[in-house]
Structures are given as C-alpha cells and as structure tokens.
Nucleic acid binder design. Structure first.
Length: 286
DNA sequence: CATCAACCCTGAGAGC
DNA sequence: TGCTCTCAGGGTTGAT
C-alpha cells in the first residue's frame, strides 16, 4: 500500500530520467518520464475512480494539457498540467503504468490517459479505493494536509509543540494526514519501534527528547524506504524491497531485533499494529 | 476534540 | 479440489 516512500518512488520514475536520484533503477526503467507529454485522450473505465469533476468533464478538460511537472505531497502523486492540477491518490492498491498507446488493457485498469507521442499512462487499481482529482487550485486538495515530514521548518521543537497540543494515542495521530502527511501503517509502526514508543502512548505525555527522537525515527524509516524504492508488501506494488528490512511490521511472533523478545500484534485505531512490548513500554520506568 | 464504527473493494489465506 | 468465510488497508463520514 503506497505510503510516502512508494509514492515518491513512483513520482521519481515519472519525472524525466535526469531527476532520478538513485543509480539502481531496476523496474523504474519501465516507467519513463512523462514530463513534457501532452494528453490527447482520456478514458474512464471505472467512474468512481474520478473524484472530481464528473468523469465526462474530467475527460473533456484534461485533453490537450501538457504535463509540466511531477510532484508528491503526502501520499498524493501530483501532476502539474498546463492549466490544471491532476492529483492521484493510490490508496491501497493503486499503481501507475506508462506504456505504448496500443498496449492491451489489463484487468483492473481504471483510467487511461493517452499521450500525443504514442504512449499512455494507466491508472490500475484492483480494490477501487484510489481516486483522481482534476482541479484548478492545488490548495483544494492539499490544504487539509499536515506538514511534510522532511520539511525543514518542521523542527524538533515544532514537532514537540504539535504533540503537546493533542491528547491522542500516538499511532492514530501519526496516521492522521492532517497532523503529518505521508505516514501509513507500515512506516508508523516502524518509526514507533525505532523511537521506542508504545503505539497507545498519549501524544502530550511525550517529552521534548522523545519528540525529537520520534521525528528523527520517522525521517529515518522514510529515508530508508525511499532508498529501497519502497516496500512491496501488497501483491500490487512492485519494485521496492523495503519489506525485507522491517523490524516489526507483519513480524508478529518473530524476535525483536533489539531485545530478542517477541513482536506482538494488536489493533489500535482500527489498524493492525506491530510492536515490541519490551522496547516500547507504555509506562516507561525511568 | 477524541474515539469508534461503517463504508468502499478485492483477493489472499484459512477452514471445511 | 473447490467452496465459503474472514480480513487487511487509507481515508471519509457520521455518531457518540
């Protein structure tokens, strides 16, 4: 399920190759850059994949626009067009293909944008949770999002203040995209493990040092995820191998790499949650 | 404001 | 083998 590192990986692959930051391209070569291509046709195979505007208007308005920039904001893939902005949220199972225009449709293809140069971009989404928005103003979509984890203005002091102002369990808070953008279940569990913080810990009981440690842990797991081109844990997302480096996520019953105890699983905020009860105590003894 | 349940979906995996 | 059942997962919405 694409979180920040997975979306960043896809965004990199959709930019022109010069923007690729990593030497090991692998599957990324199958998704050449799309910056500079002009949309010549649009086909919606599953109407509910289009969040805004209605599909007919979406198809009419997006045609003839050039893709001028590929960005990422939180878990959104952002395509800047000549006049509008195209936001793509992959949710659970979405993926993007770039291929020759004459390619055969595949099962679960939902939206197809044909380019004037004879290629096409395909939005494929088995579970149909993903959405596309075509908007005039990017703020329409991302104004509700919290800060980017790598934003330099997000200092440890700032993050501590954000945690102090809330009194929620830390895990659901980190998953809340209006609090901080880009974290999903995998990277939240991994970050809390690195920081040694229990998922149910109330945010406003964390000290300044713990806040700084948590922010640093968040950045570390995200950076490692990006370096490994994301995690391929669902059968849909391909290319990354961060799933081989999880400390706790989906490792219930395995040994904690730090203390050797057993990783436990519980449900927190309707989400499967993996943690080490020894390294992540709810009530620190200190 | 915080918490919780339901909803949207499919396919993988378990159980029979 | 093949059927049915359960479940995961992000984000939104509505109820408490």
């Amino acid at each position: 399920m694409p979180e920040l590192p997975e979306v960043e990986t896809i965004a990199c692959s959709l930019r022109n190759p010069v923007a690729l930051p990593f030497k090991e391209l692998g599957a990324l070569n199958e998704r050449p850059g799309i910056v500079g291509r002009t949309i010549a046709s649009a086909m919606v195979l599953w109407e509910r994949s289009i969040a805004q505007p209605v599909p007919a208007d979406f198809c009419r308005d997006i045609i003839h626009q050039e893709i001028t920039q590929v960005l990422r904001r939180g878990k959104y893939l952002v395509l800047r067009l000549t006049h509008d902005w195209l936001f793509i949220h992959l949710r659970m199972s979405g993926d993007i293909r770039v291929e020759p225009l004459a390619s055969e449709n595949q099962v679960h293809d939902r939206v197809i944008l044909g380019f004037a140069d004879g290629t096409r971009l395909v939005f494929n989404d088995p579970r149909k949770f993903g959405r596309l928005w075509l908007v005039k103003d990017p703020l329409d979509v991302w104004c509700t999002l919290g800060p980017e984890p790598f934003d330099e203005e997000l200092t440890a002091e700032c993050f501590y203040g954000m945690l102090q102002r809330r009194s929620r369990s830390i895990k659901p808070l980190l998953l809340d995209q209006s609090f901080i953008a880009g974290l999903g279940n995998i990277y939240t569990d991994e970050a809390l493990f690195l920081a040694g913080i229990h998922p149910l810990r109330k945010s406003n009981t964390l000290g300044p040092g713990q806040a700084a440690g948590l922010l640093s842990a968040i950045r570390q797991v995200l950076r490692e995820g990006i370096m490994r081109n994301g995690a391929s844990i669902d059968w849909v997302y391909r290319g990354g191998d961060f799933q081989n480096y999880f400390n706790v996520y989906q490792r219930t019953g395995s040994q904690c790499p730090r203390c050797g105890g057993l990783i436990e699983r519980s449900v927190v905020g309707q989400r499967g949650t993996h943690y080490c009860p020894v390294c992540q105590p709810l009530d620190p003894v200190n």
